[in-house]
Design a protein around this nucleic acid. Structure first.
Lengths: 327, 327
DNA sequence: CACATTTTCGTAATCGGTTACGTAAATTTA
DNA sequence: TAAATTTACGTAACCGATTACGAAAATGTG
């Protein structure tokens, strides 16, 4: 691997000049520029990222902290962000927290000493003081979705209350739905609670009745288990609003096992509009929130906040209802 | 952020001593060690990874090059590897190639100048000479699955031929299956071709007949589209062997749309045993290959090969048949 | 006690870049 | 043509660690 010294030597100039030319900073004579660029080309010289990071005290890594990769929702998120970041020359430092505070802490620390320039954060376990610490270390942050919206930094959030409302209202109006249940994510998870608020609001506006709130872990298995347990002992509901698609797939499976027909006997709605929703049997009605262009929005916001004097912004994504076959 | 200089100054020693003590290299007086460690503790000093990488010319990043994150197969792979890497103090540099040679090249280059210590590679577009270049730059490699098995470096592969054989044999024997089709991934994709070999072998051993080979893109949508197109024009098959689970879900959906009953009218088998397979309607019979412990195996192999004089090894994972409801 | 060994630790170079500052040469201005 | 200004580029410090080498201090040996 050629270094800047090799280039400088061959060009008969100092490394400072080479650096300037490559980065287009300061002045240089046209012939010098040409000579250097030719040598760079010949040697296939690429500045070493690590050295660059050290001297500039910033890398081109963007940390992406997420709780897991199992759910399609997150893998789709990672994908859209990776593509957007890549287009701008950033790379992704993947931080998979497994929803575990220790791993979150580990990653928050390594972010700083890897000189990542920004962090995209989706985690129950990140508190405002963690964001403060990151910003103090020059790492701009943007939280997505699950973390609170009310901290002092940039955030992108879906209006979960409205989403929950939309889902529930539609579910109720899609048939003779009178008695409904809400299948929530973990108790300490705020987006689920918000969706639940919207759910309650919709219930109060109609003559439907809220029967029970169930809890899952946002994965297909827990969706299956909790709904199977409940439905095999109770026949009192005809609609279930799920806090994400993965759990809804579990519900669909549980109903199939129990001989409950969707949407005739019971209607189901998910949340996220993951790719599978279009192809499940039956196809899942759901709430769509993230679209590919959000990757760009997130990366752009991170770049924007990095410039001093740029105030953090809050973004809200309007959830949209996607009607398919389960309602 | 405290640096090694701060620690050295407070302890009244040189940075060299601090470095030695922290890394447990060379000798140091017990009191000196104690004093330094105390200050490290007090200051919450963490060595800067970037500086460390530069001076040692190696980071603790492991590159993970995969074609996409859409398919659960890859997101599960990323997850198991992230967990294994993390346990050993490595971090993941995520390289999502979108199955695109340009992005592959971009990432191969950035690997070297990020001083990643190893690369886990799954890509159609990586050739043996790319592996050579990586190794020449001190990056040990292990290819997984889709890339050829025959290069000079470490590799982990599933015996796709045997897997295809197992799947097909079971499909045929699970009912009165006489006329079957193979739903392949992209034409240039070797694992699919291997599975197809196994498929043909199984066909030849039974009285079933191979009718058609269809091509998809390994995703649910293409699985749906190709099978829908074929099945709406032909009623001549009663079994489909799919080259991965995602496409099998597409087939299931297509059959539902066409009023074809699974497994009564047609039997379907997938490949990968993704989490959803247990919960789809109907539950998908499939071939299981990667288990969580493979993450550890991969990371260990990467560590092993790094030591000079350690010859690359080839690993084969035995595919296993998982019988569910589609056969 | 003189000498050999060992222990402990500091000096300084290095990894591969960036950049503030200064200076010599080229150009402009009067 | 001398002074002022601008252009082009080099010197050297720096980012935050690691490490080869050597020297001083401590310890052991006869």
């Amino acid at each position: 691997m050629a270094t800047i010294k090799d280039v400088a030597q061959l060009a008969g100039v100092s490394t400072a000049t080479v650096s300037r030319v490559i980065n287009g900073k300061g002045e240089a004579a046209p012939e010098t520029i040409e000579k250097i660029l030719k040598i760079v080309e010949d040697l296939n010289y690429k500045p070493n990222s690590v050295a660059k990071s050290l001297s500039k005290r910033e890398s081109n890594l963007i940390a992406l902290l997420i709780p897991n990769l199992d759910s399609p929702f997150f893998s789709e998120l990672v994908r859209t962000i990776e593509i957007a970041a890549n287009k701008k020359g950033y790379q992704i430092y993947l931080c998979n927290s497994e929803d575990n505070r220790e791993k979150v802490e580990y990653y928050l620390e390594t972010m700083a000493d890897n000189y990542v320039i920004g962090a995209i954060i989706n985690s129950l376990h990140v508190k405002e003081e963690d964001l403060e610490r990151l910003e103090a270390n020059g790492i701009s942050t943007i939280t997505i979705d699950r973390a609170q919206f009310s901290h002092a930094y940039s955030a992108l959030a879906v209006d979960h209350i409205h989403g929950g409302y939309l889902a529930t209202k539609h579910l109720i109006e899609s048939g003779h739905v009178k008695k409904i249940a809400f299948l929530s994510g973990p108790k300490d998870e705020s987006s689920s609670q918000d969706r639940y608020q919207g759910y309650l609001k919709a219930v109060s506006e109609t003559d439907a009745e809220h029967i029970v709130k169930l809890y899952g872990l946002f994965d297909i298995q827990s969706g299956y288990e909790t709904s199977y347990d409940y439905l095999s002992n109770h026949k009192d509901i005809d609609g279930i609003v799920c806090s994400n698609d993965a759990m809804a797939y579990g519900v669909i499976r549980a109903c199939a096992d129990l001989g409950i027909k969707i949407p005739q006997d019971i209607k189901v709605i998910g949340y996220d509009d993951t790719v599978t929703a279009k192809f499940s049997v039956p196809r899942l009605s759901t709430i769509s929130q993230f679209k590919p262009k959000l990757g760009n929005l997130i990366i752009n916001e991170l770049e924007r906040v990095r410039k001093k004097n740029c105030k953090p912004k809050k973004y809200e994504v309007e959830p949209e209802l996607v009607i398919r076959e389960t309602t």
